[in-house]
Design a protein around this nucleic acid. Structure first.
Lengths: 231, 231, 231, 231
DNA sequence: TATGAATGAGTGTTCATTCAT
DNA sequence: TATGAATGAACACTCATTCAT
């Protein structure tokens, strides 16, 4: 869609003293420079690929479909990615990084630890569970074993950081007396486990039995921090 | 299931003074009747397919490889399964059912609820986490969206039952005063979440950061039941 | 399952003075001798194969289907025929020969030539057009080029004889003054052409436009012998 | 055949003062636009497929062989046809249509009806009998029952039209007193029957007994129109 | 003799990748 | 840069043929 609007859009002035009469048509790039256009295309491909990989998994996804969805020709994909595998790998990186940075841009540690964790959980709910990004998590779980580099990357960039962050929070909670269970700091996974389960549940069983993730997480936090006094 | 009943069933007396010397050599493999052989082959195929599907996922698995691994010809697979898809679906059923029946054959509810849950968790640890069966769980998470029938089956046979069983236990725990958190009964998922995370963790990140699942589960139970008084 | 019930089922009386103790059970064949049974089976296979080959052509016919239709096991076919090709070839022979002998068993040349030809045509109508045998003709037309031996056989046994017979009739007709066109004797094909066309028409276009073969043949004979005086 | 007519077709003038020295080598095949090339390839595939289908029938024909004969890769076939079946169906259409249009482009009805029919027959002889197109007729007879759509198409486009045309001619002949047999108009099949037989004969029995189709048709016409007065 | 499970070569079809335009 | 026609290796599935029972 909107395949070749450029030709008409080219302001004549731009081509003023163009001497390259032979193949002048191509470089009629308007406002967005060539580089920008390329970046846009790449983004379109990444988005399309994401959709397809999530829907079908790596092996069953056809580059043809990605190209169609992205509105580019199949060959164009190869101008941006070496092959299907590296596309998948880079894709995961590309999509994950901003998520991580957003989530780790934690609000300054004001208020109680529980508040912090709750804010975090609430962000997670909005940003991940039941969204495309949640599906990405499932995709990584699915394809991880066949793409060690992806699993490694995910572990390094997301999991280990997340675990570390959770551990800090837990330790802070323990220090402040909000958390009783001292051993919890050894297994921050416990803190996130229900959230992860919620992600997977939504992908697989939502239509059998919808899950109120928010409420579940609240109950879980009550377990850890003690039931909240209803103010 | 009644794998080799023939051997025992053959009355020794019958062959006492057997004079069929002519073709005595054949019965080097006499006992396994045709039906038995067929069952064995089918089992071999199921095993091989399980390995391959786990290792590569559905789409990337080649029937050729399954056949090779099972030690049968490719065509033989089609004597047992309609096509690749139904093989996958039946496979999951075949493998899951015994697991379910074993796990649901709960020890009689003697002792405290915590003991019950602990026993259950310990079984789960031994039988599932880090085993082929654990990988199967990951496989289902991975392929579920593309195999609704598999996801449905898994939900019906495993998840919903498991959830129900956990809920009963939780309610029992609440009734007996072992569990404080009344709301936990609404989300039995919380009880199992760390176990599931452990399963997935072992599949994906074990080599980066091994997880002591047993200890983690213990900590989690402490969270729910209160820290165990070290007698 | 009920594999060898014979041994036990054999009434002792029957085996009274049987000295062939070793494999006495088999020959419990009632009225029809073993040879007869074999011939019956062969006939069943031939019939089934005929149906299938006509319906699907040689290449697209599955031995499995033939076996099923004939009520025998696939392997049994190989007890009667070397392979699929020779089955097809022998089949055509088997089926054609009786047709030929019946058709060539012309009624003694009494009456006019036209009467003779008409009798012949009427037989042909009943015995061939719109019947399985008519389909066989189409089958031979279809597979002839790939089965030279079949085409050869068909030419030798059916076509050349038929042509010769027709030629005799035509010559007789000319001699008796019933036929004017002397040259017709050079092309007996002309005499049979409409009959053959009728055969093919029924196979291919009957449902679009049914053809009254009998009437057409009458008109054709009128053309050759002159319109019949309606006495 | 007629693979690269482009070379000759390229008007020299076009390349007169070409300054595109840089990559002048490429345009050794300039004229044939992509569309032209595609059409050529498609034609090559159609030709090759025609040969193979005629030689082996539908089921026994391998796409591999068609591709090889057409000088394209197997995958290329699928750029032009959905699958083997539709290739066969489209093929028949593609090949038949021009034949029909040519044959129906009858010379203006000048002269006697017999002359007309004779002209027609002579065209038929040259264009169909003993040619690839004749084999196509046999192919349709052979595969028709398994390809109703092909039989339908053939009936609609060829047979029904041909029958109608023949009927008109016969009626004209009757009106002009050239044909005595009034009933012939009911069965135009009789008029064409020997021609069809000739087609089939050439395919199947030519090597056993060659048939002088031309002479046979003449004799047949004598039968219908009366023997020609030897001028 | 009869069976039908087992085989594996063979075939239609797909799809990642290339490359001339 | 971008295209999409062309490629051909790869794969699911079939089926004639064999052979242990």
């Amino acid at each position: 869609m909107a395949r070749k609007p450029t030709k008409a859009a080219t302001p004549p002035a731009v081509r003023a003293n163009a001497k390259d009469s032979a193949h002048a048509g191509n470089d009629a790039v308007p406002a967005s420079s060539r580089a920008t256009r390329a970046a846009e295309r790449r983004a379109a491909i990444v988005d399309a690929a994401m959709e397809e990989f999530i829907a079908r998994g790596f092996a069953a996804t056809r580059l043809d479909d990605i190209a169609k969805r992205a509105g580019v020709a199949k060959g164009t994909i190869y101008l941006h990615f070496k092959d299907k595998e590296s596309m998948f790998e880079e894709l995961v990186r590309t999509v994950i990084v901003p998520v991580v940075t957003r989530l780790t841009a934690l609000p300054p540690p004001a208020g109680s630890v529980r508040d912090l964790v709750e804010t975090f959980a609430s962000n997670f709910l909005k940003e991940v569970i039941g969204t495309r990004r949640g599906d990405l998590v499932r995709l990584i779980v699915a394809e991880g074993p066949r793409f060690p580099s992806v699993a490694d990357f995910y572990y390094r960039e997301v999991v280990s950081r997340g675990i570390a962050a959770m551990r800090s929070l837990i330790e802070l909670g323990i220090a402040r007396g909000e958390i009783r269970q001292k051993n919890l700091a050894h297994y921050p996974q416990i803190l996130v486990a229900p959230a992860m389960i919620a992600v997977i549940w939504q992908s697989l069983f939502a239509r059998h039995a919808p899950l109120d993730a928010q409420d579940m997480l609240r109950v879980h936090l009550d377990l850890i921090f003690g039931e909240r006094s209803t103010t």
